Computed example of a mutant assay.
Amino acid sequence: MITLTRLNGKQFTLNAIYIEQVEAFPDTTITLTNGKKFVVRESVEDVMSLVETFYRNISVLGLRREAEGSDVERQ
């Protein structure tokens, strides 16, 4: 799960696995696989970074958490 901020300042958590698309219109709009949309304060780059960290934490990117800081060859 990633924590994001709605335009009204309220934070919420979102399961990043269901993110299909992230765009700037100019506000960052996240579209889920079910078509639901969220407009958030975070930039597209910030959302992408949060998603990448989430994927690493659940080992979706093939890099174990304890190996992140080491010189492990990435596959």
Rank of each mutant, 00 (worst) to 15 (best):
V44D: 07
N34Y: 09
V51A: 00
T53F: 10
D71N: 15
K10A: 02
N15H: 01
F12Q: 12
N15F: 00
Q11A: 06
T29P: 01
K36A: 05
S49V: 04
I19H: 05
A16V: 03
Q75Y: 12
T31V: 03
F38W: 04
V51M: 06
I17T: 09
R65I: 15
L14V: 06
T3Y: 04
L14Y: 08
I2E: 07
E23S: 10
R41D: 08
E45G: 07
K36L: 11
T28R: 02
R6Q: 02
P26D: 10
V22K: 02
G69S: 15
E73P: 10
V40W: 07
P26Q: 05
I2L: 03
R41T: 08
L14A: 02
R41V: 04
Q11I: 01
A24G: 08
V60H: 14
N34M: 09
K10C: 01
R56F: 15
E68T: 13
T29K: 11
L63I: 15
E23A: 13
V22P: 01
Q75I: 11
I58K: 12
E66I: 14
D27P: 11
V22Q: 01
K10I: 00
T53W: 02
L50D: 07
E23T: 12
E73S: 13
M1S: 10
K37E: 14
L32R: 03
V44K: 07
V51N: 01
S49Y: 10
I17G: 06
I30M: 07
E68N: 09
E45M: 06
K36I: 08
K37M: 06
I58R: 15
M1N: 03
F25D: 11
A67E: 15
N34D: 15
S49P: 00
M48A: 14
D46P: 03
V22D: 04
N57G: 14
E66W: 14
F12I: 11
M1Q: 11
M48F: 09
F54H: 09
N15R: 08
L7N: 03
T31L: 02
Q75P: 08
L61I: 04
L4S: 01
V47L: 09
T33W: 06
M1R: 13
P26N: 01
V72W: 14
S43E: 08
V22M: 02
I19M: 02
T31C: 05
V72G: 02
Q21E: 15
N57H: 15
F25V: 03
R74A: 12
G62E: 12
V40C: 06
T53D: 09
G9L: 02
T13P: 01
E42L: 07
S70Y: 14
